[in-house]
Amino acid sequence: MCTVCGCGEGEARIEAHDHHHHHHGDESPGSRLVRIEQDILAKNNEYAAANRRHFSERGIHCLNLVSSPGSGKTALLIRTLNDLKGEFALGVIEGDQQTSLDADRIRETGVPAIQINTGKGCHLDGHRVGHALESLKPERGSLLFIENVGNLVCPAAFDLGEAHKVVILSVTEGEDKPIKYPDMFHAADLMLLNKIDLLPHLDFDRERCIDYARRVNPRIKVIQTSARTGEGMADWYQWLRASRQMALAGHPVLAGEG
């Protein structure tokens, strides 16, 4: 009763026909085989696609910020919001396992923010972000930042519908992180090498770190920043403007608005 080869009673509902079946005829009586052929993350990818449609219709440019805990991601985001709030409509979705401390810090800048607590979960997923959008209702044409749970492993696999993943690595971490956590550096389009004001006190080899990142992702862009002194922040904003403009090119309403 193999539904793949259609060799049992007429229950076959499958298009594909595969005669190299590794376990054909192996099943016990009364059972049958059902071909699925689906990505395990198919469900998440459907939610992410719905989010992406939502963003695209409203000209919302969404960035998914990922890093290990303690990279200075929230401080960098707060400085970014303060520097850009006169220029763009902004919004933030904050992901943490517990507490709304980060969303509270963000709201102090005057930018609307919503906290998602993942509880035991180690990453945000497309479904939760979709619900957060219903409450946050980011403005048309806005820049939306999603601050993912501090974790360099799991968020790599979960598409949220963002335009880009931006990975933040601080120089107080090991320079070999890009090859220790290659999936994340592979998935990101931009790496912000943060806390560079601390370099004089550290043995961090910048060139080697960037070389490692390019090894796992030859296309990755790198900007060196210090959210504390402001060094490199202008380059990061320039990247944000440019990537937003690229994304909005051809948008029926918002193209050309800058």
Partner: peptide, 11 residues
Amino acid sequence: DQMRIKELEVE
């Protein structure tokens, strides 16, 4: 780099 569910044996 794939993670796919291929097939099930069911009853």
